[in-house]
Design a protein around this nucleic acid. Structure first.
Lengths: 255, 255
DNA sequence: GCGACGGATTGACGTAGGTCAAGGCCGCGC
DNA sequence: GCGCGGCCTTGACCTACGTCAATCCGTCGC
Protein backbone atom coordinates (compact mmCIF):
# COMPACT_ATOMS: atom_id res chain seq x y z
CA UNK A 1 0.00 0.00 0.00
CA UNK A 2 2.98 2.27 -0.01
CA UNK A 3 2.30 2.27 -3.75
CA UNK A 4 -1.34 3.16 -3.43
CA UNK A 5 -0.78 6.66 -4.77
CA UNK A 6 -0.50 6.79 -8.55
CA UNK A 7 2.43 8.75 -9.99
CA UNK A 8 -0.04 11.49 -10.80
CA UNK A 9 -1.28 11.77 -7.23
CA UNK A 10 2.26 12.09 -6.06
CA UNK A 11 3.07 14.67 -8.71
CA UNK A 12 -0.01 16.62 -7.81
CA UNK A 13 0.83 16.66 -4.15
CA UNK A 14 4.45 17.52 -4.48
CA UNK A 15 4.79 19.39 -7.73
CA UNK A 16 8.44 20.07 -8.29
CA UNK A 17 9.43 19.82 -4.65
CA UNK A 18 12.41 17.59 -3.96
CA UNK A 19 11.36 14.24 -2.55
CA UNK A 20 13.08 14.81 0.74
CA UNK A 21 10.73 17.67 1.55
CA UNK A 22 8.10 15.07 2.08
CA UNK A 23 9.11 14.44 5.67
CA UNK A 24 7.33 12.36 8.31
CA UNK A 25 8.85 9.04 9.31
CA UNK A 26 6.52 6.84 7.24
CA UNK A 27 7.77 4.31 4.69
CA UNK A 28 8.59 6.51 1.75
CA UNK A 29 8.51 4.80 -1.64
CA UNK A 30 12.25 4.28 -2.00
CA UNK A 31 12.90 5.77 -5.42
CA UNK A 32 10.87 8.87 -4.77
CA UNK A 33 7.75 8.42 -6.83
CA UNK A 34 9.08 5.61 -8.98
CA UNK A 35 6.23 3.24 -8.34
CA UNK A 36 7.46 1.26 -11.32
CA UNK A 37 10.70 0.45 -9.51
CA UNK A 38 11.18 -2.85 -11.17
CA UNK A 39 11.43 -1.15 -14.53
CA UNK A 40 13.58 1.85 -13.78
CA UNK A 41 17.25 1.96 -13.21
CA UNK A 42 16.62 1.83 -9.50
CA UNK A 43 15.46 -1.74 -9.84
CA UNK A 44 18.52 -3.60 -8.57
CA UNK A 45 19.33 -1.24 -5.75
CA UNK A 46 19.43 -1.90 -2.03
CA UNK A 47 17.67 0.21 0.59
CA UNK A 48 20.67 2.39 1.27
CA UNK A 49 21.10 3.35 -2.35
CA UNK A 50 17.41 3.93 -2.79
CA UNK A 51 17.34 6.25 0.17
CA UNK A 52 20.06 8.34 -1.40
CA UNK A 53 18.26 8.35 -4.71
CA UNK A 54 15.01 9.40 -3.11
CA UNK A 55 16.78 12.41 -1.65
CA UNK A 56 17.75 13.84 -5.04
CA UNK A 57 14.69 12.96 -7.09
CA UNK A 58 11.99 15.44 -8.04
CA UNK A 59 8.56 14.69 -9.45
CA UNK A 60 7.21 16.26 -12.59
CA UNK A 61 3.85 16.17 -14.24
CA UNK A 62 3.28 17.06 -17.87
CA UNK A 63 0.20 17.53 -19.99
CA UNK A 64 -0.22 16.61 -23.66
CA UNK A 65 2.05 18.80 -25.77
CA UNK A 66 4.09 20.09 -22.83
CA UNK A 67 7.79 20.26 -23.71
CA UNK A 68 10.28 18.77 -21.25
CA UNK A 69 13.47 20.08 -22.82
CA UNK A 70 14.81 21.05 -26.23
CA UNK A 71 17.69 19.76 -28.31
CA UNK A 72 20.81 21.76 -27.54
CA UNK A 73 19.76 22.75 -24.02
CA UNK A 74 22.19 22.20 -21.22
CA UNK A 75 21.70 18.60 -20.08
CA UNK A 76 21.23 19.26 -16.40
CA UNK A 77 18.90 16.36 -15.56
CA UNK A 78 18.12 12.75 -16.26
CA UNK A 79 14.50 11.64 -16.27
CA UNK A 80 12.62 8.46 -15.80
CA UNK A 81 9.04 8.17 -16.99
CA UNK A 82 6.64 6.84 -14.39
CA UNK A 83 3.35 7.26 -16.23
CA UNK A 84 2.04 8.40 -19.59
CA UNK A 85 3.78 8.62 -22.94
CA UNK A 86 6.52 10.93 -24.20
CA UNK A 87 8.18 11.47 -27.56
CA UNK A 88 11.77 12.50 -28.20
CA UNK A 89 12.75 13.96 -31.56
CA UNK A 90 15.31 15.78 -33.63
CA UNK A 91 14.57 18.57 -36.11
CA UNK A 92 16.23 19.74 -39.30
CA UNK A 93 16.41 23.52 -39.78
CA UNK A 94 13.58 23.43 -42.32
CA UNK A 95 11.26 21.69 -39.87
CA UNK A 96 11.55 18.08 -40.99
CA UNK A 97 11.31 15.99 -37.87
CA UNK A 98 12.53 12.56 -36.90
CA UNK A 99 11.05 11.04 -33.78
CA UNK A 100 13.83 9.08 -32.13
CA UNK A 101 11.61 7.18 -29.78
CA UNK A 102 8.43 6.96 -27.78
CA UNK A 103 8.82 6.54 -24.04
CA UNK A 104 6.48 4.93 -21.53
CA UNK A 105 6.50 4.13 -17.84
CA UNK A 106 9.87 2.66 -16.92
CA UNK A 107 11.83 4.27 -19.75
CA UNK A 108 14.41 6.88 -19.02
CA UNK A 109 15.73 9.82 -21.02
CA UNK A 110 18.29 12.53 -20.91
CA UNK A 111 21.50 10.55 -21.35
CA UNK A 112 23.78 12.89 -23.26
CA UNK A 113 27.32 12.15 -24.27
CA UNK A 114 27.87 15.84 -24.63
CA UNK A 115 26.86 18.54 -22.17
CA UNK A 116 23.78 19.26 -24.24
CA UNK A 117 20.67 17.21 -24.96
CA UNK A 118 20.85 15.66 -28.40
CA UNK A 119 17.08 15.75 -28.85
CA UNK A 120 13.90 17.43 -27.70
CA UNK A 121 11.34 15.75 -25.47
CA UNK A 122 7.63 16.39 -25.23
CA UNK A 123 4.62 14.78 -23.58
CA UNK A 124 2.12 12.96 -25.76
CA UNK A 125 -0.37 12.15 -22.99
CA UNK A 126 -0.70 13.29 -19.42
CA UNK A 127 2.62 12.03 -18.00
CA UNK A 128 4.61 11.82 -14.79
CA UNK A 129 8.39 11.70 -14.52
CA UNK A 130 11.14 11.46 -11.96
CA UNK A 131 13.83 14.02 -12.43
CA UNK A 132 17.44 13.54 -11.26
CA UNK A 133 19.94 16.39 -11.20
CA UNK A 134 22.75 15.09 -13.35
CA UNK A 135 25.59 16.18 -11.07
CA UNK A 136 24.08 14.67 -7.98
CA UNK A 137 23.23 11.48 -9.79
CA UNK A 138 26.79 11.20 -11.05
CA UNK A 139 28.03 11.47 -7.51
CA UNK A 140 25.76 8.60 -6.59
CA UNK A 141 26.97 6.57 -9.55
CA UNK A 142 30.49 7.09 -8.31
CA UNK A 143 29.47 5.68 -4.97
CA UNK A 144 27.22 2.86 -6.10
CA UNK A 145 28.71 1.02 -9.05
CA UNK A 146 25.61 -1.15 -9.25
CA UNK A 147 23.64 1.89 -10.39
CA UNK A 148 26.20 2.61 -13.05
CA UNK A 149 26.02 -1.01 -14.17
CA UNK A 150 22.29 -0.69 -14.44
CA UNK A 151 22.58 2.53 -16.40
CA UNK A 152 25.04 0.87 -18.77
CA UNK A 153 22.60 -1.98 -19.27
CA UNK A 154 19.83 0.47 -20.08
CA UNK A 155 22.04 2.37 -22.52
CA UNK A 156 22.97 -0.91 -24.24
CA UNK A 157 19.32 -1.74 -24.50
CA UNK A 158 18.56 1.64 -26.03
CA UNK A 159 21.42 1.17 -28.43
CA UNK A 160 20.07 -2.17 -29.63
CA UNK A 161 16.65 -0.59 -30.12
CA UNK A 162 18.19 2.27 -32.08
CA UNK A 163 19.99 -0.19 -34.32
CA UNK A 164 16.81 -2.11 -34.96
CA UNK A 165 15.18 1.18 -35.86
CA UNK A 166 17.96 1.95 -38.34
CA UNK A 167 17.21 -1.32 -40.10
CA UNK A 168 13.56 -0.34 -40.20
CA UNK A 169 14.18 3.20 -41.46
CA UNK A 170 16.76 2.25 -44.04
CA UNK A 171 15.41 -0.95 -45.45
CA UNK A 172 11.78 -1.69 -44.67
CA UNK A 173 8.70 -0.84 -46.75
CA UNK A 174 5.81 1.19 -45.35
CA UNK A 175 3.79 -1.94 -44.61
CA UNK A 176 6.72 -3.61 -42.88
CA UNK A 177 7.36 -0.47 -40.87
CA UNK A 178 3.80 -0.25 -39.58
CA UNK A 179 3.64 -3.94 -38.74
CA UNK A 180 6.97 -3.74 -36.87
CA UNK A 181 5.78 -0.65 -35.05
CA UNK A 182 2.52 -2.16 -33.83
CA UNK A 183 4.21 -5.35 -32.69
CA UNK A 184 6.89 -3.42 -30.88
CA UNK A 185 4.30 -1.26 -29.09
CA UNK A 186 2.59 -4.46 -28.03
CA UNK A 187 5.77 -6.06 -26.78
CA UNK A 188 6.63 -3.03 -24.70
CA UNK A 189 3.12 -2.76 -23.26
CA UNK A 190 3.43 -6.39 -22.23
CA UNK A 191 6.73 -5.69 -20.49
CA UNK A 192 5.02 -2.97 -18.50
CA UNK A 193 2.38 -5.45 -17.50
CA UNK A 194 -0.27 -3.95 -19.76
CA UNK A 195 -2.31 -5.71 -22.36
CA UNK A 196 -0.32 -6.45 -25.51
CA UNK A 197 -3.11 -7.18 -27.82
CA UNK A 198 -5.60 -4.55 -28.21
CA UNK A 199 -2.51 -2.34 -28.16
CA UNK A 200 -2.80 1.27 -27.08
CA UNK A 201 -1.55 3.73 -29.71
CA UNK A 202 -1.62 7.08 -27.97
CA UNK A 203 0.32 9.06 -30.58
CA UNK A 204 -1.02 10.76 -33.71
CA UNK A 205 -0.60 9.45 -37.26
CA UNK A 206 1.75 12.32 -37.83
CA UNK A 207 3.95 11.26 -34.92
CA UNK A 208 3.95 7.68 -36.17
CA UNK A 209 5.00 8.92 -39.59
CA UNK A 210 7.81 10.99 -38.16
CA UNK A 211 8.97 7.96 -36.22
CA UNK A 212 8.89 5.58 -39.18
CA UNK A 213 10.15 7.94 -41.87
CA UNK A 214 6.75 8.21 -43.57
CA UNK A 215 4.05 10.84 -44.02
CA UNK A 216 0.75 11.00 -42.19
CA UNK A 217 -1.04 10.00 -45.38
CA UNK A 218 1.06 6.91 -45.95
CA UNK A 219 0.61 5.84 -42.34
CA UNK A 220 -3.13 6.24 -42.69
CA UNK A 221 -3.28 4.40 -46.01
CA UNK A 222 -1.20 1.56 -44.62
CA UNK A 223 -3.44 1.22 -41.59
CA UNK A 224 -6.46 0.87 -43.85
CA UNK A 225 -4.60 -1.67 -46.01
CA UNK A 226 -3.90 -3.78 -42.94
CA UNK A 227 -7.46 -3.32 -41.78
CA UNK A 228 -8.86 -4.39 -45.14
CA UNK A 229 -6.59 -7.45 -45.04
CA UNK A 230 -8.16 -8.26 -41.66
CA UNK A 231 -4.79 -8.16 -39.92
CA UNK A 232 -5.79 -5.36 -37.56
CA UNK A 233 -8.94 -3.63 -36.40
CA UNK A 234 -9.05 0.04 -35.42
CA UNK A 235 -10.87 0.50 -32.15
CA UNK A 236 -12.01 3.59 -30.28
CA UNK A 237 -9.63 5.57 -28.07
CA UNK A 238 -6.60 4.87 -30.24
CA UNK A 239 -6.53 1.15 -29.61
CA UNK A 240 -5.54 -1.29 -32.32
CA UNK A 241 -6.56 -4.90 -32.23
CA UNK A 242 -3.90 -7.16 -33.71
CA UNK A 243 -6.11 -9.77 -35.35
CA UNK A 244 -3.34 -11.91 -36.82
CA UNK A 245 -0.09 -11.50 -34.95
CA UNK A 246 1.67 -14.23 -36.92
CA UNK A 247 0.90 -12.61 -40.24
CA UNK A 248 2.00 -9.24 -38.87
CA UNK A 249 5.26 -10.77 -37.71
CA UNK A 250 5.86 -12.21 -41.16
CA UNK A 251 5.22 -8.83 -42.71
CA UNK A 252 7.43 -7.07 -40.15
CA UNK A 253 10.35 -9.36 -40.99
CA UNK A 254 9.87 -8.90 -44.71
CA UNK A 255 8.47 -12.33 -45.56
CA UNK B 1 59.04 3.64 -28.57
CA UNK B 2 56.97 1.11 -26.77
CA UNK B 3 54.53 1.94 -29.49
CA UNK B 4 56.99 1.36 -32.31
CA UNK B 5 55.22 -1.80 -33.40
CA UNK B 6 52.10 -1.19 -35.44
CA UNK B 7 48.98 -3.07 -34.43
CA UNK B 8 49.60 -5.30 -37.41
CA UNK B 9 53.11 -6.18 -36.31
CA UNK B 10 51.76 -7.17 -32.96
CA UNK B 11 48.94 -9.15 -34.47
CA UNK B 12 51.34 -10.91 -36.77
CA UNK B 13 53.62 -11.87 -33.94
CA UNK B 14 50.97 -13.03 -31.58
CA UNK B 15 48.04 -14.11 -33.66
CA UNK B 16 45.26 -15.03 -31.31
CA UNK B 17 47.48 -15.79 -28.37
CA UNK B 18 46.47 -14.13 -25.12
CA UNK B 19 48.57 -11.08 -24.42
CA UNK B 20 50.04 -12.48 -21.26
CA UNK B 21 51.68 -15.27 -23.25
CA UNK B 22 53.97 -12.65 -24.58
CA UNK B 23 56.32 -12.93 -21.66
CA UNK B 24 59.71 -11.27 -21.23
CA UNK B 25 59.94 -8.42 -18.77
CA UNK B 26 59.99 -5.59 -21.31
CA UNK B 27 57.54 -2.68 -21.17
CA UNK B 28 54.44 -4.18 -22.65
CA UNK B 29 52.05 -1.68 -24.16
CA UNK B 30 49.63 -1.44 -21.25
CA UNK B 31 46.35 -2.16 -22.96
CA UNK B 32 47.75 -5.13 -24.82
CA UNK B 33 48.13 -3.92 -28.36
CA UNK B 34 45.93 -0.87 -28.00
CA UNK B 35 48.41 1.58 -29.39
CA UNK B 36 45.53 4.00 -29.73
CA UNK B 37 45.06 4.07 -25.96
CA UNK B 38 43.81 7.60 -25.86
CA UNK B 39 40.88 6.62 -28.01
CA UNK B 40 39.83 3.33 -26.51
CA UNK B 41 38.03 2.72 -23.31
CA UNK B 42 41.35 2.15 -21.63
CA UNK B 43 42.16 5.80 -21.98
CA UNK B 44 41.45 7.04 -18.46
CA UNK B 45 42.93 4.08 -16.65
CA UNK B 46 45.87 3.96 -14.28
CA UNK B 47 48.75 1.54 -14.55
CA UNK B 48 47.22 -1.00 -12.22
CA UNK B 49 44.01 -1.24 -14.20
CA UNK B 50 45.88 -1.36 -17.47
CA UNK B 51 47.99 -4.25 -16.25
CA UNK B 52 44.87 -6.18 -15.47
CA UNK B 53 43.40 -5.34 -18.82
CA UNK B 54 46.53 -6.39 -20.65
CA UNK B 55 46.25 -9.79 -19.03
CA UNK B 56 42.88 -10.57 -20.56
CA UNK B 57 43.26 -9.00 -23.98
CA UNK B 58 43.91 -10.93 -27.17
CA UNK B 59 45.00 -9.57 -30.52
CA UNK B 60 43.24 -10.30 -33.74
CA UNK B 61 44.02 -9.52 -37.33
CA UNK B 62 41.45 -9.58 -40.10
CA UNK B 63 41.67 -9.28 -43.86
CA UNK B 64 39.16 -7.60 -46.16
CA UNK B 65 35.90 -9.52 -46.09
CA UNK B 66 36.79 -11.59 -43.02
CA UNK B 67 33.81 -11.95 -40.68
CA UNK B 68 34.35 -11.26 -36.99
CA UNK B 69 31.03 -12.54 -35.68
CA UNK B 70 27.44 -12.93 -36.84
CA UNK B 71 24.18 -11.55 -35.53
CA UNK B 72 22.65 -13.97 -33.06
CA UNK B 73 25.95 -15.55 -32.02
CA UNK B 74 26.68 -15.83 -28.34
CA UNK B 75 28.23 -12.50 -27.31
CA UNK B 76 31.35 -13.86 -25.66
CA UNK B 77 33.70 -10.97 -26.38
CA UNK B 78 33.99 -7.23 -26.66
CA UNK B 79 36.33 -5.77 -29.27
CA UNK B 80 38.20 -2.59 -29.80
CA UNK B 81 39.49 -1.70 -33.25
CA UNK B 82 43.14 -0.70 -33.31
CA UNK B 83 43.69 -0.40 -37.06
CA UNK B 84 41.77 -0.67 -40.29
CA UNK B 85 38.06 -0.39 -40.96
CA UNK B 86 35.16 -2.65 -40.04
CA UNK B 87 31.47 -2.64 -40.83
CA UNK B 88 28.64 -3.89 -38.62
CA UNK B 89 25.28 -4.71 -40.13
CA UNK B 90 21.91 -6.34 -39.71
CA UNK B 91 20.14 -8.45 -42.32
CA UNK B 92 16.50 -9.12 -43.14
CA UNK B 93 15.63 -12.72 -44.04
CA UNK B 94 15.42 -11.83 -47.74
CA UNK B 95 18.92 -10.40 -47.77
CA UNK B 96 18.23 -6.70 -47.46
CA UNK B 97 21.04 -5.27 -45.40
CA UNK B 98 21.38 -2.23 -43.17
CA UNK B 99 24.88 -1.24 -42.17
CA UNK B 100 24.63 0.04 -38.61
CA UNK B 101 28.04 1.63 -38.58
CA UNK B 102 31.59 1.76 -39.84
CA UNK B 103 34.30 1.35 -37.24
CA UNK B 104 37.86 2.64 -37.26
CA UNK B 105 40.81 2.66 -34.89
CA UNK B 106 39.59 3.57 -31.42
CA UNK B 107 36.03 2.38 -31.90
CA UNK B 108 34.72 -0.59 -29.97
CA UNK B 109 32.07 -3.16 -30.74
CA UNK B 110 30.29 -6.09 -29.24
CA UNK B 111 28.18 -4.39 -26.57
CA UNK B 112 25.06 -6.50 -26.40
CA UNK B 113 22.17 -5.91 -24.07
CA UNK B 114 21.18 -9.48 -24.59
CA UNK B 115 23.45 -12.53 -24.49
CA UNK B 116 23.65 -12.50 -28.28
CA UNK B 117 25.21 -10.05 -30.71
CA UNK B 118 22.58 -7.84 -32.27
CA UNK B 119 24.53 -7.47 -35.52
CA UNK B 120 27.22 -9.01 -37.67
CA UNK B 121 30.71 -7.57 -38.00
CA UNK B 122 33.12 -7.87 -40.91
CA UNK B 123 36.43 -6.34 -41.94
CA UNK B 124 36.47 -3.84 -44.81
CA UNK B 125 40.22 -3.39 -44.95
CA UNK B 126 43.10 -5.19 -43.33
CA UNK B 127 42.29 -4.60 -39.65
CA UNK B 128 43.58 -5.26 -36.16
CA UNK B 129 41.48 -5.59 -33.03
CA UNK B 130 41.80 -6.16 -29.32
CA UNK B 131 39.50 -8.83 -28.03
CA UNK B 132 38.25 -8.97 -24.42
CA UNK B 133 36.47 -12.00 -23.00
CA UNK B 134 33.19 -10.58 -21.81
CA UNK B 135 33.10 -12.41 -18.47
CA UNK B 136 36.60 -11.40 -17.53
CA UNK B 137 36.03 -7.84 -18.59
CA UNK B 138 32.90 -7.66 -16.51
CA UNK B 139 34.86 -8.77 -13.49
CA UNK B 140 37.27 -5.93 -14.16
CA UNK B 141 34.43 -3.47 -14.53
CA UNK B 142 33.18 -4.58 -11.15
CA UNK B 143 36.56 -3.81 -9.70
CA UNK B 144 37.33 -0.60 -11.53
CA UNK B 145 34.29 1.66 -11.74
CA UNK B 146 36.27 4.10 -13.83
CA UNK B 147 36.27 1.59 -16.67
CA UNK B 148 32.56 1.17 -16.37
CA UNK B 149 32.16 4.92 -16.43
CA UNK B 150 34.21 5.05 -19.57
CA UNK B 151 32.19 2.31 -21.17
CA UNK B 152 28.99 4.15 -20.31
CA UNK B 153 30.40 7.26 -21.92
CA UNK B 154 31.22 5.33 -25.06
CA UNK B 155 27.77 3.76 -25.16
CA UNK B 156 26.19 7.21 -24.78
CA UNK B 157 28.33 8.45 -27.61
CA UNK B 158 27.25 5.54 -29.82
CA UNK B 159 23.67 6.22 -28.89
CA UNK B 160 23.91 9.84 -29.97
CA UNK B 161 25.47 8.75 -33.26
CA UNK B 162 22.70 6.21 -33.79
CA UNK B 163 20.08 8.89 -33.19
CA UNK B 164 21.73 11.22 -35.65
CA UNK B 165 21.71 8.36 -38.15
CA UNK B 166 17.99 7.84 -37.59
CA UNK B 167 17.40 11.46 -38.54
CA UNK B 168 19.48 10.88 -41.66
CA UNK B 169 17.75 7.65 -42.63
CA UNK B 170 14.24 8.83 -41.96
CA UNK B 171 14.29 12.38 -43.19
CA UNK B 172 17.22 13.30 -45.42
CA UNK B 173 17.41 13.19 -49.22
CA UNK B 174 20.07 11.22 -51.07
CA UNK B 175 22.21 14.33 -51.57
CA UNK B 176 21.91 15.31 -47.91
CA UNK B 177 22.78 11.78 -46.87
CA UNK B 178 25.95 11.65 -48.94
CA UNK B 179 27.08 15.10 -47.82
CA UNK B 180 26.46 14.19 -44.16
CA UNK B 181 28.31 10.93 -44.63
CA UNK B 182 31.42 12.48 -46.15
CA UNK B 183 31.60 15.18 -43.50
CA UNK B 184 31.15 12.66 -40.74
CA UNK B 185 33.93 10.47 -42.15
CA UNK B 186 36.14 13.52 -42.21
CA UNK B 187 35.31 14.50 -38.65
CA UNK B 188 36.08 11.04 -37.37
CA UNK B 189 39.35 10.83 -39.31
CA UNK B 190 40.33 14.12 -37.72
CA UNK B 191 39.59 12.77 -34.25
CA UNK B 192 41.91 9.87 -34.98
CA UNK B 193 44.57 12.36 -35.93
CA UNK B 194 44.28 11.64 -39.65
CA UNK B 195 43.69 14.09 -42.42
CA UNK B 196 40.07 15.23 -42.56
CA UNK B 197 40.09 16.73 -45.96
CA UNK B 198 41.05 14.48 -48.67
CA UNK B 199 38.98 12.00 -46.69
CA UNK B 200 39.63 8.30 -47.03
CA UNK B 201 36.56 6.33 -48.10
CA UNK B 202 37.63 2.69 -47.80
CA UNK B 203 34.20 1.11 -48.25
CA UNK B 204 32.41 0.23 -51.49
CA UNK B 205 29.52 2.19 -53.00
CA UNK B 206 27.34 -0.74 -52.10
CA UNK B 207 28.36 -0.51 -48.43
CA UNK B 208 27.74 3.23 -48.44
CA UNK B 209 24.31 2.60 -49.90
CA UNK B 210 23.47 0.02 -47.27
CA UNK B 211 24.57 2.46 -44.59
CA UNK B 212 22.55 5.39 -45.92
CA UNK B 213 19.45 3.50 -47.01
CA UNK B 214 20.21 3.95 -50.72
CA UNK B 215 21.24 1.75 -53.64
CA UNK B 216 24.71 1.55 -55.16
CA UNK B 217 23.43 3.36 -58.23
CA UNK B 218 21.97 6.27 -56.30
CA UNK B 219 25.18 6.63 -54.30
CA UNK B 220 27.18 6.69 -57.50
CA UNK B 221 24.89 9.17 -59.21
CA UNK B 222 24.92 11.45 -56.18
CA UNK B 223 28.72 11.38 -56.07
CA UNK B 224 28.85 12.49 -59.69
CA UNK B 225 26.27 15.21 -59.01
CA UNK B 226 28.44 16.57 -56.20
CA UNK B 227 31.51 16.24 -58.40
CA UNK B 228 29.86 18.11 -61.25
CA UNK B 229 28.81 20.83 -58.80
CA UNK B 230 32.52 21.10 -57.85
CA UNK B 231 31.80 20.31 -54.23
CA UNK B 232 33.96 17.21 -54.17
CA UNK B 233 36.65 15.59 -56.31
CA UNK B 234 37.11 11.84 -56.57
CA UNK B 235 40.75 10.92 -56.15
CA UNK B 236 42.59 7.63 -56.58
CA UNK B 237 42.62 5.01 -53.83
CA UNK B 238 39.15 5.83 -52.61
CA UNK B 239 39.96 9.32 -51.40
CA UNK B 240 37.49 12.14 -51.73
CA UNK B 241 38.55 15.75 -51.75
CA UNK B 242 35.97 17.99 -50.07
CA UNK B 243 36.32 21.07 -52.22
CA UNK B 244 33.69 23.18 -50.50
CA UNK B 245 33.10 22.07 -46.94
CA UNK B 246 30.74 24.95 -46.17
CA UNK B 247 28.48 24.13 -49.07
CA UNK B 248 28.54 20.47 -48.09
CA UNK B 249 27.56 21.38 -44.53
CA UNK B 250 24.65 23.44 -45.83
CA UNK B 251 23.50 20.51 -47.92
CA UNK B 252 23.95 18.07 -45.05
CA UNK B 253 21.73 20.18 -42.81
CA UNK B 254 19.08 20.53 -45.46
CA UNK B 255 19.61 24.20 -46.34
C1' DG C 1 51.93 -4.95 -71.18
C1' DC C 2 47.57 -7.75 -71.49
C1' DG C 3 43.47 -9.74 -70.16
C1' DA C 4 40.01 -10.54 -66.88
C1' DC C 5 37.22 -9.55 -63.09
C1' DG C 6 34.78 -6.84 -59.74
C1' DG C 7 33.36 -2.56 -58.56
C1' DA C 8 31.74 1.98 -60.49
C1' DT C 9 29.18 4.62 -63.66
C1' DT C 10 25.52 5.80 -66.75
C1' DG C 11 21.09 5.38 -69.07
C1' DA C 12 16.13 4.10 -69.62
C1' DC C 13 12.35 3.13 -67.26
C1' DG C 14 9.19 1.74 -63.22
C1' DT C 15 7.07 2.54 -58.69
C1' DA C 16 6.56 3.31 -53.65
C1' DG C 17 5.59 6.75 -51.29
C1' DG C 18 5.29 11.95 -51.20
C1' DT C 19 2.36 16.12 -52.25
C1' DC C 20 -1.71 18.60 -52.65
C1' DA C 21 -6.43 18.96 -51.96
C1' DA C 22 -10.94 17.68 -50.49
C1' DG C 23 -13.98 15.79 -47.41
C1' DG C 24 -15.14 13.04 -43.02
C1' DC C 25 -15.19 12.19 -38.14
C1' DC C 26 -15.03 13.21 -33.39
C1' DG C 27 -14.68 15.69 -29.21
C1' DC C 28 -15.25 20.02 -26.97
C1' DG C 29 -16.98 24.50 -25.71
C1' DC C 30 -20.71 27.36 -25.45
C1' DG D 1 -27.30 20.45 -29.63
C1' DC D 2 -24.64 23.15 -32.69
C1' DG D 3 -20.58 24.75 -34.58
C1' DC D 4 -15.67 24.66 -34.66
C1' DG D 5 -11.06 22.82 -34.99
C1' DG D 6 -7.96 19.17 -35.18
C1' DC D 7 -6.98 14.87 -36.77
C1' DC D 8 -7.86 11.25 -39.92
C1' DT D 9 -8.94 9.35 -44.40
C1' DT D 10 -9.19 9.17 -49.30
C1' DG D 11 -8.23 10.44 -54.06
C1' DA D 12 -5.42 12.21 -58.00
C1' DC D 13 -1.18 13.15 -59.37
C1' DC D 14 4.03 13.58 -59.14
C1' DT D 15 8.86 12.65 -58.26
C1' DA D 16 12.98 10.81 -55.98
C1' DC D 17 14.81 6.90 -55.92
C1' DG D 18 14.88 1.96 -57.22
C1' DT D 19 15.47 -1.56 -60.94
C1' DC D 20 17.48 -3.51 -64.82
C1' DA D 21 20.92 -3.49 -68.11
C1' DA D 22 24.90 -1.93 -70.54
C1' DT D 23 29.36 -0.33 -70.50
C1' DC D 24 33.53 1.56 -68.17
C1' DC D 25 37.64 1.46 -65.57
C1' DG D 26 41.36 0.18 -62.20
C1' DT D 27 43.76 -3.47 -60.28
C1' DC D 28 45.94 -7.60 -60.21
C1' DG D 29 47.82 -11.86 -62.05
C1' DC D 30 50.66 -13.41 -65.40
Amino acid sequence: MQQSLSPFDIGRIRGLEPARERAGGEQVSPCGACSVRHLTFCAPLGEEELNHVSRIVQNIELHPGDPLFDEGEDATHLYSVTAGAMKVYKLLPDGRRQIIGFLFAGDFLGLADDEAYAYSAEAITHSALCRFPRRKLEALLERYPRMERRLLGMASHELAAAQEQMLLLGRKTAKEKIASFLLSLGRRAEQRGQTANPVSVPMSRNDIGDFLGLTTETVSRTFTQLRQAKLIALMPAGRVDLLDVEALQDIAEGN
